[in-house]
Every structure is written in structure tokens, then in C-alpha cells.
Amino acid sequence: MTHHILKATKDTVHLGGFSHVLTPALTVNSGDTIEVETYSGYYVYEQAPPEFMTPEFLDICKNLPPERKIAGGPHLLTGPIYVRDAKPGDVLEVELNAIAPSLPVGFNAIRSGWGALPEKFPQPALRFIPLDLTNNIAEFPTASGIKIPLKPFFGILGVATPDASRNSIPPGAYGGNIDNRELQPGSRLFLPIFVPGALFSIGDGHAAQGDGEVNVTAIETSMNGTIKLKLRQGWNLTTPIAETPTDIITMGFGETLDAALELALKNMIEFLERFADLSPEDAYVLCSLAVNFRITQVVNSPQKGVHGMLPKSIFSQKISLSSHIS
């Protein structure tokens, strides 16, 4: 196993989407670890305070090559990372070992026509929010005494598909803009692979976010992390699934919350059939008794997200995704 460092530069990031024709920023073997740097705020940098900018980020914003501008999404992603021997039908395990903001400030933006209440809040608005990285909090509004604990995570973790240009806003079977705040250090995300090499990209750092992400954004900020990428085989995975130290998480994405919930529920039933050896009906009942279904996000049009959380503590024997697949 090798440890890599992947800095974010104009040659190692891409903007707005995913593409299988992008030149990889890094090539790794299964089991390698990567220290990865990400930047956020490409479209707001001219309005940002000095502490939000670094010379490297400014170079990206001013000199990003046209071929690394993929689609119309707002996200600046680091990658793609090519994993040797990865092929369609395999599964990519993304182990999240460390995640931390790299700057003492983030931003929140209301976008006209977006969010859960676009008619009530039609005007765009941009706020930069100081981050107290020593005490791990953000006070908002300033001087209000309201202190939000920082729980940093990467909003986007995804692989390429056969599409040459796929917008970074909607999540899907490939992962992408999941915006699931449960994916903290110590978690693992499992993604189906669609193209050779997987072509994994990461970004959209969130210092703090509520379930739903209702006004379109979290506290968006540049984020560094350490991840491990590992290939898994023999598992016909069709949609992302995750494991935290305490829960198994299934996900559903749909144009309505009802559709997203239905898919997250079906994915949880399928998990319980396969990994807990339950009948479909018993799995359905257990979901009603013990699984917590939560709104992931309602703003990544056209896909809303729901995730189901199954507590691992209810099982008498240890249950783990990693131990059940090769």
C-alpha cells in the first residue's frame, strides 16, 4: 500500500460535473491512502474575504483550463482518481479517515429559484461565516450567542459514468452530491463502478449542515481529508450504501421525497435480506420498528435524498459490510 498526497491545483481539479474523458489527477492501487485537498467557492471568490483565498485557489479560479470545466454545476472537485484494475461491476469502498476545514471561514448562499422555499426567499444572498477551528464551532448570526458545532464532511463523493458530461448537482447511483452529514471520519461509503478505473472525485466541503440542507447550501468551505480507496468484488451493488461506527445507511434519490423514501426503504430491505438473512416481510417489519429514515437533502434538483439508518447495536452478532464482501 502506498500513501499519496493530492494537492488541489488547476491541473488536478475539475468544475461543475463528472466525466470519464477527464485526464486522471492521480493513479492509485486498491488499498492506497490519499491525503486530498479540496477547494470550494469557485463562483464566489471575487466576493470572498482575504482569509478565504489562498494563492493556489486564486490560480485555480483565474486559470482553470477549459477542458476541466465539465458542466454547469457550481462544485469544484479534486480528481478524478484512477484506481488500477477497477472495472464496471466492481464496488469502490471509500474509507474516510480524516476530514478537516483548511480555512477559518466558510460561506452560505441562497440561490434564486432554489431551496425548499424559493417563493418565500426569492432573492440571492451570500454570507461568509467565520469558523472557530480551535473550539470547533461557528457562531451564527455573528454575536448572537448561537454556536453551531462543526461536523465537517465532504458533500460530494462520486465516480464517473459513461456520460462525458454529467452535472455535479444531482446525486445518483454513482454517488456524487450526496450531502449526507453522517459520512464523518470513521465511515465507509460503497459505490458501484461504471467505467474502468472508477474515476473517483471528491469535494464540496461542508463544515456544518442540517438534515435537508434547506436553503441550498451548508457552511461551504475548503476541506482537506485522508481517504483509503479499496476495490470490492462479488457484490452486485446498484446504489450507494454506507457504514458508520454505529449504523448501516441505505440511500434513496428521487424527484420527490416519497420516491426517495421508497427507494431507501427498498435498499434497506435488500440489505437485511442479504446480510442479516431475513425474509422480505421480516425485513420490512424491522424497518418499521428500528430503522430511522431521515431527509438527506431537498435541494439538489431534480433529485431529493432520503437515507435510512439501521443501528448495528440491535444485532447480537457483529454486522459489517466490509466483513461480508471480498
Rank of each mutant, 00 (worst) to 15 (best):
H4Q: 04
H4G: 02
T12Y: 08
V21I: 15
T23W: 05
T23N: 11
A25S: 06
T27C: 04
S30V: 09
T33S: 15
E35A: 02
E35N: 08
P50T: 14
M53Y: 06
M53K: 14
T54Y: 06
K62F: 03
N63K: 14
L64N: 07
E67Q: 14
L76P: 00
L77K: 07
P80A: 06
V83A: 08
D85Y: 15
N97C: 05
G106D: 15
A109Q: 14
W114C: 02
L117Y: 10
R127P: 04
P130H: 12
N135H: 15
I137N: 07
F140V: 13
P141C: 12
S144V: 03
G145W: 01
P149L: 14
L150D: 04
P152A: 06
P152R: 09
V159A: 05
P162F: 01
S165M: 07
I169Q: 11
P171C: 11
Y174I: 00
I178F: 13
N180L: 12
P192G: 04
A198R: 00
G203T: 05
H206Q: 12
H206E: 12
A207E: 12
Q209M: 14
G212K: 05
E213C: 13
E213L: 15
N215F: 13
R232D: 08
W235K: 06
L237F: 13
T239I: 13
E243P: 02
P245T: 10
T246Y: 12
T256E: 01
K266F: 04
M268S: 05
E273D: 08
F275R: 14
L278D: 08
L278R: 06
S279G: 07
P280F: 09
N292C: 03
V298D: 00
K304N: 08
L310R: 05
S313F: 10
S320Q: 11
